[in-house]
Design a protein around this nucleic acid. Structure first.
Lengths: 204, 204
DNA sequence: ACCTGAACACCGTTCAAGT
DNA sequence: ACCTGAACACCGTTCAAGT
C-alpha cells in the first residue's frame, strides 16, 4: 500500500504467509497469475524479497502443492480394511483438488504426488502388503489410484468452461449426454474408486 | 540460418511445419522450451511470422494437442464389444502420450481431451448406449477412462526423474517397492483398464 | 538478517511498415 | 499474402547495495 518501507525495515514476512498468498492468488485468478513479481505486489513487497523465503519459483510451486495436500489430509484413523484406507487416501486427495481447482495443473506438473507425504505412502504400503500384495504391486496400486483422481480433476475442470456451449459440432448422443448437466464429480469419483477396488481385489 | 530473407520473401512456411516443429521442440527440450520466439528461431523465421499460421500461443498449444491425439488415433475397426472399443480408445490415447511424454502436461492443461475427436466420442457413446448405458453414464465412463490414462502419464513421468535417488527419506517398504525398478507403464495401464471395465460392467 | 533497485536475458502480442 | 522490426508490458533471477 504505502509504497515505501525503506530497506532493512522488514515486513515480517513469513514463509507461511507467502504460501497462503500464493494459494489465494491461484484460487482467485488461476495459475497463470502466479508470478514472483505479482505475488510480491500482492504482499506489498519487492519481488526479490520472496527469494528470502523460497529458493526459486519451482520451489514455490512445490511448496504450494505440498501445502494443499497437507491441508486436505485427514487423520488416517478409521480404516478397517485396505480398501477403506486406500479410498480415504484418494478422497483426501480429491478434497484438496476440489478446494483449489486452479492448482490441479500444478500438482500434475510437479513431483511430490507420489511421495505426498512419504510417511503416508509408507503407511499405505504397509496396509497393502499386510493384505497380501507385494511391495511393487502395492506401489502400483497407490500410483494408479492417485493418477485416476488427479486425471479426473484435470478433465472435469476443462468441461466446466465449455458447459455453456456444449453443442459446437457434437453429435446427438454427446448433446443428450450433456443435457442433465455436468456429471457430479463426487459421484463419478466414487464410482471410479469402487471399480478400481474391485479390480485390485481380483489380484489377491 | 542465413539470417535475412527480406520481407515478403515467404519462407513457404505451412501450419503443418509449425506444428511439427513445435512437437519436435517439446520432445527435445520439454514444454518449457516452447515459446513463440524460440519456435520461430527454430524455423529460421521471425517470431511474428508464426501469428500468420496460428492465432496465438494458446491456439498453438491446442493444435499441438490435437495433432498428437490425431496422430495416435488408429482406425476403430475391430471392436466386437464395448469393452474392446473403450480399451482401444484408451490405448490410442496412451500411445500418443507415450510418444510425446513432455506433451502430457499440455494435454492436461488444455481442453479438447474430452472432445478429442468429437466424432470419435459420438461413436463411442453410440456403442455404450447400445450396450445399455444411459448417455450421461456413457459420457462419465469415457471421461473417467480418459482421466485415468492421462493421470497415469503425469505421475509416471514424475517418477522417472527421481528413479536415480528414490531413497530420500522413504521408509523400507517404499524402497523395497522401488527395488525391481519402476513399474511398467503398459502393464500398469492394462491392469487399471481391466479393473475399470469390471466396474463398468457391474453397472449394467 | 532482511529488504531494495538496477540490470540481464527472456516472454506474448500489437501495430505500422515493407515487398 | 506473407514477412519484418520496433515497441509495450510483462517474466525469473543475479548481484551489489542499503540498514
Amino acid at each position: 500500500m504505502s509504497s515505501s518501507r525503506g530497506q532493512g525495515k522488514h515486513a515480517g514476512l513469513s514463509r507461511e504467509q507467502v504460501l497462503q498468498a500464493a494459494v489465494a492468488l491461484i484460487d482467485a485468478e488461476g495459475v497463470g497469475a502466479l508470478s514472483m513479481r505479482r505475488l510480491a505486489r500482492e504482499l506489498g513487497v519487492e519481488a526479490m524479497t520472496l527469494y528470502h523465503h523460497v529458493q526459486n519459483k519451482g520451489a514455490l510451486e512445490d511448496a504450494v502443492v505440498e501445502y494443499i495436500l497437507t491441508e486436505s489430509r485427514r487423520e488416517p484413523v478409521h480404516a478397517a480394511t485396505w480398501q477403506e484406507a486406500l479410498t480415504e487416501y484418494a478422497l483426501d486427495f480429491h478434497r484438496g483438488l476440489l478446494a483449489h481447482p486452479g492448482a490441479a495443473i500444478l500438482v500434475a506438473s510437479r513431483p511430490g504426488l507420489t511421495e505426498r507425504n512419504l510417511s503416508d505412502l509408507e503407511h499405505l504400503l504397509q496396509i497393502l502388503t499386510e493384505a497380501g500384495f507385494s511391495p511393487p504391486t502395492a506401489l502400483a496400486i497407490v500410483h494408479a489410484t492417485a493418477a485416476s483422481v488427479l486425471g479426473q480433476h484435470l478433465s472435469v475442470s476443462d468441461e466446466h468452461r465449455e458447459s455453456p456451449a456444449p453443442a459446437a459440432g457434437a453429435g446427438p448422443l454427446v448433446n443428450s449426454a450433456l443435457e442433465p448437466g455436468l456429471p457430479d464429480a463426487d459421484a463419478l469419483l466414487k464410482f471410479t474408486l469402487k471399480a478400481l477396488m474391485a479390480g485390485y481385489e481380483s489380484l489377491l
